[in-house]
Computed example of a mutant assay.
Amino acid sequence: MTGAATISGPERERIAATLAEIACAAGEILRRYHRGPCPHALKPDGSPSSAADVEAEDLIVAALAGRFPGIAVVAEERAQSGAPAGRLAETFFLVDPLDGTRDFLAGTPDYSVNIALVAGERPVAAALAAPGLGRVWWAGPRTLEAPVVDGRPGAARPVHARPVPEAGLLALGSRRHGDAATDLCLAALPVLETRQVGSAVKFGLIAAGEADIYVRCGPTMEWDTAAGDHIVAAAGGCVVVPGGGPIRYGRQGPDHRNGPFAALGDPSLAPRLALPACATGPSAIPQLNAAHP
């Protein structure tokens, strides 16, 4: 498995289904900790790491090694542990075992597990589980959604992003990470309502046709966005950066940090966006959970 061109559509679909199984299994660990005691501490960047993050990541990394031996894994807790990063191969996994940790610790249900296979700088298969909501999305060539039943994906159905509604856009915002640049981008669009939702669940809602746009001008990491990026794109939407291109994954920076982006259910919105050239907000100052969407 060396690049996007060598992975067939059926193979990507099989990989995505496997990632959904793994994400749901990790979600069961998170559910056990949710709304109960969950020891946690701050990482060097100021974001929280909990026992739930670590245990879920251990399960995911072990499962990926067993099912896809030889493929590198970049996982949040390990990547931010201070260990030096090696050079990535063209094909690798990006893993966020618990996206939205601070909201999770506060007891809110919209946290997620994100797993993506990247090949040639773009995700080609992905899963995004929302254990607290009982939902899981996954995508190879197309996006599927299922309820989570007994810790596994239930009966799946294809989902599709929706065109711009005549009444106006439903925008999704981050509960803890608003900024003036994001507000300015949205002000230029026909937004009817803005709803606050935690974690990468926002991408799943856009892919399912339940919302239209998510703009993020503050800092995020590659493992925050890769799974949701592919799930939106395979549902007919897109995730764009300044200039209208896609996010490219596997950069060899010290922290795998993204710049500004927008997830859109209807790609026709892309030319109307004016994203800033670089991330805004507290990117240079560590703050609690600053890198989570």
Rank of each mutant, 00 (worst) to 15 (best):
C217K: 03
I285C: 01
G107S: 10
V191H: 12
A23H: 06
L19D: 03
P131L: 01
E11T: 13
C278R: 15
A161Y: 04
R248I: 10
G245D: 11
I22V: 06
W137M: 00
T101G: 01
A235V: 10
H34V: 05
P147F: 01
L189C: 10
A130L: 15
G168N: 05
W223V: 01
E90H: 15
L192W: 08
V95F: 07
F68E: 03
R251V: 08
E90G: 02
G154N: 07
T91C: 11
V113T: 05
R251C: 05
G265R: 13
A146I: 10
D150L: 08
G228S: 06
A235D: 07
D150C: 04
A20E: 13
G134C: 10
K202P: 11
A270H: 15
T101V: 04
T6P: 07
G151F: 14
A139N: 12
R87G: 02
G36F: 15
G36S: 14
L264V: 09
L19T: 04
V164W: 03
H40A: 01
A263T: 12
P147M: 00
A171G: 03
G281R: 10
G86S: 10
P48W: 09
S49I: 08
S199Y: 13
T225P: 12
G265I: 14
P153S: 01
N258Y: 12
P293Q: 06
R176Y: 15
I71R: 06
H230Y: 07
G134F: 14
A211H: 15
A41H: 10
R31C: 08
L269C: 12
N258A: 00
A180E: 13
A119N: 11
F68G: 00
P131W: 12
G27T: 07
A233K: 08
G27E: 06
V241S: 00
L64N: 07
K202I: 10
E193W: 07
L275F: 09
E76H: 03
R135T: 06
L264K: 08
V241C: 01
Q196M: 13
H34S: 02
Q196T: 06
